[in-house]
Design a protein around this nucleic acid. Sequence first.
DNA 1: TGAACATATGAACAAGTATTCATATAAGGA
DNA 2: TCCTTATATGAATACTTGTTCATATGTTCA
Lengths: 122, 122
Amino acid sequence: MNNSQNENSICGCNIIHEDIVNKVSQLLPADDLLYKLSDFFKIIGDKTRIKILHALFESEMCVCDIAYLLNMNQSAISHQLRVLKTAGLVKFRKEGKVVYYSLDDDHVKNILDQGLIHLSHK
Amino acid sequence: MNNSQNENSICGCNIIHEDIVNKVSQLLPADDLLYKLSDFFKIIGDKTRIKILHALFESEMCVCDIAYLLNMNQSAISHQLRVLKTAGLVKFRKEGKVVYYSLDDDHVKNILDQGLIHLSHK
DNA sequence: TGAACATATGAACAAGTATTCATATAAGGA
DNA sequence: TCCTTATATGAATACTTGTTCATATGTTCA
């Protein structure tokens, strides 16, 4: 237990447990890494994108197929596919006019499945 | 290959591969479940909350400690702790004025670690 | 070459959300 | 009881982001 007299200007209160804060502070991963991590979860934390990913678990699909499947217009799907592509979660191949998207990462299915397990245990 | 003459009013294009769409449509988890799943990832897809969770991996902490550790004011942390509490990811115990937060879910650390593995493999 | 179509993309708009500020609540100590 | 302090919370603000609309690009086919 370690209190200082004046409240801290940063957080607006005193440090109650300086020893714990110091210990945890050292063990915490770098900000940079944690930001990347939260960005990754942000990508899969969207209902449209998570549906696209689940669809691609089953089969590669073209933009038009996905749009029809999800009952959304082509533009919205195309925008979201770009997000997934930029994040390295999907890749594509072109065949004439048609662009086929598929998964580009083995871990993603694993992580989504873990999420489902989490939900089922709550 | 299966084209209809007029473009589809829903997605603004024709279905290219009706067979695939039908197959995937049957295999896709229920909307309800996928929404819950994306909500879960949305919770951990925030830099402040992911820092809080990582901090709590190491030790239970009071609100003030977390605020000081993350260099944020008490109110912001309190709001985010409520989000995490509502999602069932953290729990708390009271000791006088002080409220101690800790993890309330075993799967979360696992999932975050998987996320880190994903990042390191990219 | 021109029409049709699959996809991409920029801009605008709408909706959601994280943080701040002010203040309330509740507990401890003088 | 009054003062201090730890936490919670409602409202306002600022920011982020998903979707739509209009349009551009690029390919096929007649």
